[in-house]
Amino acid sequence: MSKRKLTIAVTGLNNTDNPGPGIPVIRGLRDSEEFEVRIIGLAYENLEPGIYMHDIVDKTYQIPYPSAGTEVLLARLEYINSIEKIDVLIPNFDAELNTFMRSADKLKKMGIRTFLPTLEQYEERHKSVLPEYGEKYDVRVPKSKAIFNASDIYSLNDDFTYPVMVKGKFYDAFIAYNTEQVKMHFNKISSKWGLPVIIQEFVKGVEVNVVALGDGKGNVVGAVPMRKQFITDKGKAWAGITLKDDKMLEQTQKIFSATKWRGGMELELIKTNDGKYYLIEINPRLPAWVYLAVGAGQNLPEALVKLALGEDVKPYENYQVGKLFIRYSYDLICDIAEFEQLSTFGEL
């Protein structure tokens, strides 16, 4: 049987020490038995490694930052689509999701399908409103507070005991042991990601994650739990192992049934020594370690593409426990001419 040909656009080609999910998502798609994919990379910066990985990404275009607004983004995508005829677009950055969700209808008119959460689903899982989320869906979450003003830092002692986590709206999380450190992180984070900055109770335990995909009707199409085995100084997993943990899967199913989540998701949980799970974050997309799920038997990127195309997908029921991923770095060699090409024309 010959494979179906599809053109798929992917962002998040920053396969650095703080990697975006683009390259792992693409590897999943390239592994597909059903599709033969042409991959269009969409890059924000000119040194995102994926741009130069020609066996992974067929062609890359630069696109404007989300902060430039949907209008300029759509104009750029229209141009790209006129050349490439994109079937499905998979955005992989938190910060760009809002822009793409709002553009979903217009993209559809261009013939570009996406499979994203609804704005409501996206908004209610924000870190700044995690306590409300926990209450609404009966999920245990650490105590947290969104602060808008550096002067609020002094009154944190009333509600929190140090250490606390200081988190940005989209990215970044730091541990702080005193007021001064909170202040430092507050300034750094707010200048980068805006307000509010989230202060979260520090829960001691093991960090465990679930990658999952929802069909938008309350079903979990696939879910794989993982424990980080090695964490970089940026807090990113450098190695991890799939777990057999029914409680985590139950938790995932419960959240998906209640919210009817649509698209990829990463649940970040802390498992305490006495076996309690705290939900600390919900990332509204597939994570950078999604290829572990592919390796363990659940090709979630492929399933996501099928959902985007409006096809029925049979939920994955199994995965291999004890599969490991070990990340490694690799030095690509490329000529300045490639950099020139990209910098001058915005395409490579």
């Binding site: 300045i336 020139e340 910098s343």
Partner: peptide, 18 residues
């Protein structure tokens, strides 16, 4: 200097666009 307006300074490794 290329016709496309790309400048590469081999002594510093910097590149520029014009």
């Amino acid at each position: 200097i290329s016709d496309t307006g790309f400048v590469f300074d081999p002594s510093s490794g910097d590149s520029y666009s014009l």
